[in-house]
Each structure stands twice: as C-alpha cells, then as structure tokens.
Simulated scan of single mutants.
Amino acid sequence: MEGLRDKVIVFAGAGGIAAATASFLGAGGARIVVGDVVDTSAEATVQAARDAGGDGIATVTDIADENQVKRQIDLAISTYGRIDGLFNVAADIHPDSVARDTDAVGIDLAAWQRSLDVNLTGYLLTLKHALPHLIAGGGGSVVNTLSGAVYAGMPDKVAYSATKAAIGALTRHVARRHGKEGVRCNGVAPGLVMTRQTELNLPEGFRDSILAATPASRHGRPEDIGATVAFLLSDLAAWTTGQILCVDGGTTMRA
C-alpha cells in the first residue's frame, strides 16, 4: 500500500487484527511499536510486520496504566525519533470479563469499571501522550477500534457496548479539535471477525446466527480490518477524518 513508507505507527494492543494490520504496514515500509499486556502477542504482531518487509519493536504495556502508556510512547520516540500514527485496538475481552459483562441490572460494577479503564480511559491515555508528538511532527493519523456492538443493540455486554460507543465520540472530538494541526482521527467498527480468540470463545451456533443476519457470504477475517486500518493510517486517506467505518460484511448499513 502506498503512503506508508518509513512511517512510525504505535499500536496499543496486539492480536489477530493487529497482526493483520502490521502485515499491511510492513509491506508498505512502515515501522511499528507494539504494546500489549501479553508480551508474546506484541512480539508476534511485530514479527508480522517484519515478515512483510517492515520493522518494529514490542513492549509490555497495560493500556489502563498511564505510566506504562507514556513509557511506550517514549520508547517510540527514543527509537525512531517521531510518531506518525496511532492504532488503538486494545480491549478487555478476557473470558472472565466477558462472562461478567451482563446487563444494566445485573452487571458487576468491578467489571464495568475495568471495561471503562481499558476500553475508554486507555484510549484517552494513548491520545494524551501521542497527540503532542503527532502535532509537533506536523500531524498524523489516529485509528480507534469500535465494534459492531455499538449499533446492534445487544442484550448483553453492556459495558463493552457502552465503552465502544463512547470511543466514537472521542474519535470525533480529536478530529474536530486537532484537525487544523494536521491530525486525522477515524474509527473502524468490525463485525464478527474470525480471529483465533473468536474461534475459541464463541460457540459455533452463535457464529452461525450472526452469519445468517449478515448480507455477506462469510464472516470477517483479520485482514479485512487490517486493510482498512492501513488505508486510514496512510497518506491515501489524507482527506478522511472524523469517520467511523463499519467493516462488517454489510451488517450495519448507515446513510
């Protein structure tokens, strides 16, 4: 993909979608700095970029911990001298957290708070520490990860859905507030994407029911999301900002 050569992109989060994105960025000649609570996931994401022709470094980062977020941003600056983009993809999707995220009546408030800390406050923290460097360098691109759960009206996962919806407002705030300083900020809202974690944690019957309601003939793949994110991080999307792109096989159709 054009418009990525030598760009330095910070990843907040690793995993299947992150690795697919890293492959596109690496093929375009970008360098990435990946932080995740699981060091092997961060390393695997960096390796995906290297295998495609790019470069990168990995570090252990809990996005809910401001000191760790700042440390990752500082590492990017000390290693590569600048930041050109930020990809927020981290989310609290541990099986225990998912099980405790029920509805507005029954949810464990500790589970609600953890979702806020990771899914929403964590994104604010990365923006807090990355934006000054993006602005100082003349601008750059931010891509935040939402979810199809924002639009589906799900009967469970109240914390996950609410925090992902709030990321949409955060995305538009950054686009509006910092656009004149050269910063673009967009979001992607994936539908059901068949990552390894999805295959392990979601029953086949549930996956089949989602596919039956999807206009497309298959579930999403990590590379479907990765291609969109890479485009938004590239110079090809230079006039695209403040948008939430639903990459979900047509499940969400909005004017």
Results as ranks from 00 to 15, higher is better:
Ala48His: 00
Val8His: 09
Ile73His: 08
Ala238Met: 01
Leu25Glu: 00
Glu43Asn: 10
Asp55Trp: 02
Phe231Val: 01
Thr61Gln: 13
Thr102Arg: 09
Leu127Ile: 07
Val150Asp: 08
Gly35Ala: 01
Leu233Ser: 06
Gly56Ser: 10
Met154Ala: 13
Arg176Phe: 13
Gly54Trp: 01
Glu199Val: 14
His219Pro: 03
Met253Ile: 06
Pro222Cys: 09
Gly35Phe: 08
Asp96His: 10
Tyr123Ala: 07
Asn201Tyr: 04
Ala12Arg: 03
Arg82Leu: 13
Ala44Leu: 02
Leu200Val: 05
Gly26Leu: 10
Leu233Asp: 05
His219Ala: 04
Gly85Met: 01
Thr163Phe: 11
Asp36Gly: 12
Lys157Trp: 12
Arg172Lys: 15
Ile32Asp: 06
Ala91Thr: 11
Pro190Tyr: 09
Ile93Pro: 02
Val37Ala: 14
Glu181Val: 10
Leu202His: 02
Asp156Ser: 15
Thr40Leu: 03
Asp51His: 11
Ala19Leu: 01
Pro203Asn: 00
Val60Lys: 15
Asp235Glu: 14
Ala90Leu: 08
Ala12Cys: 13
Ala159Tyr: 04
Ala22Thr: 05
Leu236Pro: 01
Leu124Arg: 03
Thr40Asp: 13
Val38Phe: 04
Asn119Lys: 11
Lys7Cys: 00
Ile73Cys: 10
Ala42Asn: 08
Ala30Met: 10
Asp103Gly: 11
Ser147Leu: 09
Gly179Glu: 01
Ile167Ala: 13
Ile63Leu: 11
Leu134Ala: 09
Glu66Trp: 04
Asn144Met: 12
Leu232Ala: 08
Ala90Gln: 00
Cys185Tyr: 01
Ala12Tyr: 02
Gly26Arg: 07
Ala237Thr: 00
Leu125Tyr: 07
Val38Lys: 15
Val118Ala: 05
Asp62Gly: 04
Ile9Val: 14
Val46Gly: 11
Asp117His: 02
His133Gln: 08
Arg184Cys: 04
Gln243Val: 15
His94Asn: 15
Val60Phe: 12
Gly140Met: 07
Thr171Cys: 13
Ile107Cys: 06
Arg184Pro: 09
Ser97Pro: 00
Gly226Tyr: 03
Ser141Arg: 00
Asn88His: 15
Lys128Pro: 07
Asp39Trp: 08
Pro132Ile: 10
Leu127Cys: 13
Ala90Asn: 08
Pro132Lys: 09
Lys7Gly: 01
Val158Cys: 15
Gly35Cys: 05
Ala90Ile: 03
Thr102Phe: 00
Arg114Tyr: 05
Gly182Trp: 09
Ala14Phe: 12
Ala22Phe: 08
Thr214Asp: 03
Ile167Met: 14
Asp65Tyr: 12
Gly122Phe: 02
Ile244Lys: 03
Thr79Gln: 14
Gly140Cys: 05
Gly26Pro: 00
Leu120Glu: 09
Pro215Glu: 03
Arg50His: 13
Ile244Val: 15
Gly242Gln: 12
Ile135Glu: 14
Ala18Phe: 10
Ala20Asn: 06
Glu199Lys: 13
Gln47Ile: 06
Met253Gly: 05
Leu125His: 02
Asp103Thr: 14
Glu2Phe: 04
Lys128Gln: 12
Cys185Gln: 06
Leu75His: 03
